[in-house]
Nucleic acid binder design. Structure first.
Lengths: 223, 223, 223, 223
DNA sequence: TATGAATGAGGGTTCATTCAT
DNA sequence: TATGAATGAACCCTCATTCAT
């Protein structure tokens, strides 16, 4: 007994996408390997050809989501000759849209960090899950957290840039960043695809909210 | 042979507090009845004398947390003769401090809503868990969600009040509310008790951020 | 759903006895928790109330078997005023009979040592199987091996005693001991309860074989 | 895309040797097809081009081991004009050295018989594993056990020969044989390649032990 | 021949829950 | 009230085996 019915062979990316979907809605613990497998027409056992364990699969999902998010934001931060306000507007927009449209990003941002932290390896008893696997996991997990901090830092730097520029009021850039990201990530919690507003609509309003808060009132400069 | 050594018998409140603690850090699925019981020096079986099921216990925690949050906020909203800006400042402050200081509130706000939504009762019908229990659960759960919407609405109404007043710019009160609450709830995700800033400090900055965003610039009125 | 039909509650000793039985015939890997549970009218899950894991259960079986074996042999070795030959005769007899009659002893002597050595802890992923459990296991396992060496040493000392006495020929006591124990333990491999010979019969012949080999021929002393 | 890099194609013998190695140290159940395959740089799937199943592979290992053992012993037994004592000495020596030096013999003698007895073929009938395969397995397995009995009998016959000769005391040849073989096989359990004694050393001592036990004391004949 | 992908059948283990005491 | 013992259901994971390539 083996083989798939007939359709194409499934690859890593498809599994990650499927897992991100399920994970986002059910959470790590409530998601079973069977749930994920079903989404790609496989059995749970088959997933183990592609990922060493459920933890590694979670890790892969989060990595993909975070990479996507960073890839979107990074070039904007790097742009020269662009006001911080405009950068921030674009960053917020791209991030919110990522959260609403890309399940992996949503998962990476919102819910499953705790599961990753709590992951109690080494997971397997007597199997082929050895010390190297454990080490790899820890390494990648730490790397994920570092990159996550880096992601947050992209926002913080832009806020600081604006303050130095004189575009923004002098605020605690760290807390303001957490405030913005909190609001943005939280979108992943309440957003409903078929609701009144699209991701772009929401982004537009949040940009307005935060830029209004940060910008130095232009009129007052004259006074 | 049984019963507890000598120290006081455990009551509902203690269990709820213990559960809130564990729940907040580990999440619903990762928390076992044994974990919770251990916190109050009981066995898992004993918890069933106080709560009909794990789901009911979760519900109780969330109800307590939400009640607490509402109790704090409600009187502020009700106050007459107080500018919306001031009301909002007080509301934000109280809520953030609740999230950072009260585990039940933290749990109710941040993480465990999904678990409540996914709760699939009753696990089995062979036992003493009957239709009435099921009905009660559904009723209380729905009531919880309604109250949660009510809680959110308290913020939204205040924003609207400010807009009508002329204190605040005309914004989409709904999205602004979600933005604020997202940022506030997210504090529960990243806050560390012994960090650089206290809950009050954080609250102070967030109040500044959001009021700056909402307020109609006074100076410009003159221009 | 719970409780046992009606009959008595099962205790550790019964489970160990049942496990020893199954283990001895099927070997560790081929024995499932379900097999063992079935022998005592329990489900596999119930075994976990009594033993932390399959490995711990194996350990318990081996400890009981070895303790039994040592308890039988030790007093004989300690006896003063008894010729080494007689001691050895009694020791061999008791040990062989233990092997044939007591499944735990049989298991401890013959087959499951390798399983114990290969036990790949920590076994459980995310469960309540923590570092302490791991440490306890390692400690008890090492202790088991030490006691096993001690058991072997009881035979070796007796052989040496006989050599010093002049009762026995000067031989390599270590290898002779291993020879004897190998032969004796091997009985557990081929012995069939309803065969031609009882454990006592076999013991009698082995005693004859080894004493003949060890004893200094009395007649020759005269020559 | 597949096939092995460039080095020679793997053949049955190599696989059997590799399997014997792994089997001897880990036991049948704890050995996976992947383990064996890895030893010869193949994948588990590839093993099925050489052996119909894991059971057949085990059988092959045991057959090879037993054949080797018999091939060594048989000519000695057949020799005319050689005292039984000398025959036995040579037989014991060759067998012990086989056990210590040849993993297949070690496996065949010591550990894996039980696995062979418990083999429950065929696992599933949906595949290409048909009735013929089943019959072949049973036939070869029975043949193996018969040859194993024959092997034991070679020793027993020599003992009997010595008794008839007058070289040996009248003993229960069957039990004495089992005693000797038990001791010899047990060497496979405790022998460590880099220990104090070589296989030949051990053999020397065991020969001494058993011949001393069996031989009619020469000096006493005179008395 | 060789292999990657897939799977059915378990196996060990956890856990919410029940019930007799 | 409290608990120890018990269990059904489910979960993660492994493994021998198959088959298309």
């Amino acid at each position: 007994m083996a083989r798939k019915p007939a359709d194409q062979s499934v690859n890593r990316e498809e599994i990650i996408a499927a897992a991100a979907d399920v994970l986002r809605y059910n959470g790590y613990d409530a998601t079973t390997m069977k749930d994920i497998a079903a989404k790609v027409n496989l059995t749970a056992a088959s997933l183990y050809h592609h990922f060493k364990s459920k933890d590694f699969l979670l890790l892969a999902v989060l990595e993909v989501g975070l990479d996507h998010a960073i890839a979107q934001i990074e070039p904007i931060v790097a742009a020269a000759d662009k006001p911080a306000a405009q950068k921030l507007a674009e960053m917020i927009t791209l991030h919110i849209v990522s959260v609403t449209d890309n399940t992996a990003v949503g998962a990476a941002m919102v819910f499953e960090i705790r599961a990753l932290m709590n992951a109690k390896l080494p997971p397997r008893n007597g199997g082929q899950f050895g010390q190297e696997d454990y080490d790899e996991f820890i390494k990648r997990r730490d790397s994920f957290f570092a990159r996550r901090a880096y992601f947050e830092n992209l926002f913080k730097r832009t806020v600081q840039e604006g303050i130095v520029n004189g575009e923004f009021r002098p605020v605690d850039a760290s807390i303001v960043t957490k405030t913005m990201l909190g609001a943005q990530n939280w979108v992943g919690v309440w957003f409903r695809p078929n609701g009144r507003l699209s991701g772009a609509d929401i982004a537009h309003m949040m940009v307005d909210t935060f830029l209004h808060s940060l910008r130095v009132p232009q009129g007052l400069n004259m006074a």
